[in-house]
């Protein structure tokens, strides 16, 4: 806990450096932002097509589903902006033995790793998500109570924690296997499942989705919170997320002790 304030400050400076770097290549920065902002709206359109051309998702009206999609964009934009640089960074770190450098700084390695995640490329998605949420809430007259808003923010925090836990596990496997590029596609596919609400899945799959690997924590629970439709499942999902975070941190500490560096 002593380190959190310092690490937040380092994250802020790393973020400034990352932006300075991006601005060095300003055309890439501007085009990236613009394309992200425009193409981020394609995912909801895709969902809309699925919804209108099929029987839709049980228990979800079109306006609720659109809100789900906007929250999905906001969540993706948030976690990718804050931590999106980590999968690439950890790949380089593992491959070239650069973990040495993390061990040479006066902070817990995991904390420092998380400060290296800022990725300005996803700011467009974040912006698109936030704009989308505001428009949908106003256009479809969603009545959002204060308690629902607080619960939404709480579950949005849980969503971020679960994402960080998955990132830690991803990083551990990368450090262990040294070269695990394909792991990224598995990670992305798991995240892709958050595009769909729990009602799409049935039986055992739904149990996995809600509690075992609580993918529901990412978008489903926050959306349900905002709509005032939370049930006990969400509490179990949140508990499951905290357990996974605890496990991933323990595994990280274990793996750090096993670190063998690379080269001379």
């Amino acid at each position: 806990m002593v380190y959190i304030k310092d690490l937040l400050l380092i994250f802020y400076y790393e973020m400034k450096l990352s932006l300075a770097k991006a601005v060095e290549f300003r055309s890439d920065f501007l085009f990236g932002m613009l394309s992200d902002l425009v193409f981020s709206f394609f995912a909801p359109i895709f969902q809309l097509l699925i919804y209108t051309k099929t029987n839709g998702y049980p228990g979800w009206s079109l306006d609720q589903l659109l809100l789900y999609q906007a929250i999905l964009l906001t969540w993706q934009g948030t976690v990718n902006t804050l931590f999106g640089g980590i999968p690439y960074y950890i790949g380089i770190v593992a491959k070239y033995g650069l973990f040495d450098r993390l061990l040479l700084t006066p902070y817990p390695t995991l904390g420092l790793l998380l400060t290296r995640g800022f990725n300005q490329k996803s700011l467009g998605t974040l912006l698109a998500g936030l704009i989308g949420m505001i428009i949908i809430i106003y256009k479809y007259n969603f009545n959002i109570s204060l308690i629902n808003l607080i619960l939404f923010l709480f579950y949005f925090g849980i969503a971020t924690i679960f994402y960080v836990s998955m990132l830690i596990l991803y990083s551990i496997i990368n450090l262990k296997l040294i070269y695990a590029d394909r792991l990224r596609s598995i990670f992305d596919n798991i995240i892709f499942l958050s595009n769909f609400p729990a009602e799409v899945f049935s039986g055992g799959l739904r149990v996995v989705y809600l509690f075992v690997i609580p993918i529901a924590a990412w978008v489903y629970f926050p959306t349900q919170a905002l709509l005032g439709r939370l049930n006990n499942y969400s509490i179990y999902g949140a508990i499951s997320t905290i357990i996974i975070l605890w496990l991933s941190v323990k595994l990280w500490i274990y793996q750090t002790k096993k670190y063998t560096s690379a080269g001379g």
């Binding site: 450096l17 290549f25 902070y107």
Partner: peptide, 18 residues
């Protein structure tokens, strides 16, 4: 930092080591 002047990294070091 490969893309930036070394001075930028020095400023980051300042914060890392307080």
């Amino acid at each position: 930092n490969w893309e930036l002047p070394a001075l930028e990294t020095y400023h980051l070091q300042k914060h890392i080591y307080k």
